[in-house]
Write a protein that binds this DNA or RNA. Structure first.
Lengths: 196, 196
DNA sequence: GTTCCCATGTAACCCGTTACATGATTTT
DNA sequence: AAAATCATGTAACGGGTTACATGGGAAC
């Protein structure tokens, strides 16, 4: 836990991806989308601007590559200073602790102003998403199972899976509690529309 | 799941807090810190600027209050349009799905470039934090247990607790796996410093 | 023939953080 | 005497998102 405002986590993550193999911005964005997106999303346009910045800083070196039947591209590879910057980041203790936000909870915190039906709808919707997401991550974990070279990718996927499971569990618990208390009438506010 | 760019979740959350009782920016910031901070952090200066914005928009009304032995303050209360905006937000289906970032995972994804010891240190540190956080939330859940009027606050706290538990579990699992595989030597890269 | 993939970026905007600034009063 | 609480903001900066812009080739 630090503020990590030396190179910035996003920059380092990009260096990390380039370190796997040299690639173009397009390829990097695609790789990011299918590997780190679950815990560190990067938008397409940021990939390009960040690569340009890293090249200016001398951390990556881009080479223009002409292609037949395809647009030209620029392949970036890690330079020695870039590798050093990456390892400095990785070997420093601590990590940037980002605070995450949850829009569902932001709403649900004020659920006393909703009708019982609205609460349930919201939770059902959330549960459905969480479950879809859970399945996605389960598939990734399964795919990576046993592949030892992907150990840390599997680890991060497993993290996501655990959290997705927690989401589903929570939603189910809440729905159960809501349905219980509806019978007892202690959480509902009875009226459907505005009651004042 | 929408983009929710009509009033903005932060604005609505502030309306929601003001709806509980009229209060000053200072009080609101304090309340936010001890209630919604876990899933929707708002910085102090944003509270003030947002309240000013909401007043300009007519959603809250501020009244200057003079105090003896204390700085004057401005107490905000919800207006009718403000209440309407709040309920419109709450009653609309869907929620803003923010993508959250995790700095630990961002690093750990590239853990193959670390030494075994660095990996372990990182996870131990993370585990410690996660556990502290877990205890905090457990305390909140316990405190709110049984208080029916705080049902939804309890619900959000329980969400946080489940996730904190997932964090601890994950860290423990990883540490175990790391220690196991160290014996087998299939995850480590042997050398301590750069090995090329 | 339409849609998708490859490929790269710009521009505008917005949300939010940190640090700074001020200052009395109360508690330790 | 020092620190925390009450109370409100400004200013600068920075990171990131979305939409826009372009355009050829491949696949369906």
């Amino acid at each position: 836990m630090d503020g990590n405002r030396e190179p910035g986590t996003t920059s380092c993550v990009i260096l990390g991806l380039v370190s796997k193999r040299p690639m173009s911005g397009y390829e990097l964005a695609a790789l990011a989308a299918r590997s780190i997106d679950h815990f560190w999303p990067i938008s397409k346009s940021q990939v390009y601007s960040e690569l340009a910045r890293l090249e200016r800083a001398g951390y990556v070196k881009g080479t223009h590559i002409e292609q037949d039947h395809r647009p030209d591209k620029r392949r970036y590879e890690l330079t020695a200073p870039g590798e050093q910057a990456l390892d400095t980041w990785l070997q420093a203790p601590g990590y940037s602790s980002e605070r995450n936000r949850n829009g569902l909870l932001a709403k649900f915190f004020f659920a006393e102003r909703m009708t019982q039906q609205q609460r349930i709808n919201l939770l059902v919707e959330y549960r459905a998403h969480a479950d879809t997401y859970r399945l996605e991550l389960q598939a990734i974990v399964d795919k990576l199972e046993g592949r030892n070279h992907a150990a840390y990718g599997r680890a991060t996927a497993r993290y996501g899976l655990l959290h997705a499971q927690a989401n589903v569990t929570w939603a189910d618990d809440m729905l159960k509690a809501l349905r219980n208390s509806a019978e007892l009438g202690d959480l509902d506010r009875k009226a459907a529309p505005a009651d004042r």
